[in-house]
Simulated assay, not measured.
Amino acid sequence: MNSDKKTFDFLIAGVPYKLKTSHDDATVDELVQFVNSKMNQALSVTKNGSYQNAAVLTAMNLAEELILLKRKAHRELEKLEEKALRISLELENSKNNSNKVLNN
């Protein structure tokens, strides 16, 4: 990511926005497409077609995805930490056993 900020003009659900960011064009394009996709999904299930309701539903859906991904990442990190600890203990035990054999 660059430290130089650039202004992007884009549409979300047909509404124009400006964003000043140091992300590259491809990243901003991916973000806009992602949010547009989520917004269109929300608009399709919003009974009155309200952009405000769709925006809140989109935010809730994105928050849910983020929280579930964070939980999954945390569980995976815990598994890796446990595995690293087991390997470390096995190495320590192996080292201690080797030293005992050498000292006898």
Rank of each mutant, 00 (worst) to 15 (best):
S50N: 04
H74M: 12
E82V: 09
K47C: 01
L85A: 09
K100Q: 13
K20N: 12
K100I: 14
L102C: 01
V45I: 15
H74R: 10
N104S: 14
K83M: 10
A42V: 05
Y17V: 05
N2Q: 09
E92K: 12
D4Q: 10
L66V: 07
N40T: 10
E82D: 12
T58W: 05
Q52G: 07
L91R: 09
I12S: 01
L77P: 00
R75P: 00
V32P: 04
S88L: 08
M1Y: 01
K47S: 13
R86A: 09
T46F: 02
Q41G: 02
L68W: 01
N93P: 02
T58H: 04
D25T: 13
L68I: 10
Y17M: 02
V32G: 06
N53W: 00
T58E: 04
I67M: 08
N36T: 07
V101E: 07
K72I: 04
T21V: 03
N97F: 07
L89R: 12
L80W: 04
L91H: 05
V28K: 03
N99I: 15
K47M: 07
E92A: 12
S50E: 06
H23R: 11
V45T: 15
K5W: 00
S37R: 14
A26T: 08
L102I: 14
A73I: 06
L77E: 13
F34A: 08
T7Y: 00
L89G: 00
E30M: 10
N93L: 11
T58D: 03
M39C: 06
Q41W: 03
A54H: 08
E65P: 03
L77M: 11
D4E: 13
E64G: 03
E78L: 15
T7G: 01
E82M: 13
N96D: 07
K70P: 00
T46A: 07
N36W: 06
V28A: 04
Q52M: 15
K72G: 03
F10N: 01
K100D: 13
N96W: 01
A54T: 08
E90R: 08
K72H: 10
S44M: 09
Q33E: 12
D24L: 05
T27Y: 12
A55M: 06
N61M: 11
S22F: 07
K47Y: 06
S37A: 10
S98V: 08
S44F: 06
G49L: 06
K79M: 08
S94H: 08
A13S: 10
H23S: 13
R71T: 15
L43R: 12
V32I: 14
Q52D: 13
S88P: 00
L66C: 06
L19C: 05
D29A: 15
L31Q: 03
F8D: 01
R71I: 15
E64H: 15
D25A: 14
A42Y: 02
L91D: 11
D24I: 11
L11S: 08
D9F: 04
K6E: 05
V56R: 01
E76Y: 04
L69F: 06
A13W: 04
K70R: 13
S37D: 14
T21W: 02
V56D: 01
K72L: 09
N99C: 02
K5H: 02
A13T: 06
E92D: 11
K18P: 00
T21D: 02
L91I: 08
N40C: 03
T27Q: 09
S98Y: 11
L66T: 12
A55Q: 02
T58A: 08
S50P: 02
K5N: 04
L62H: 01
V101W: 02
A13I: 08
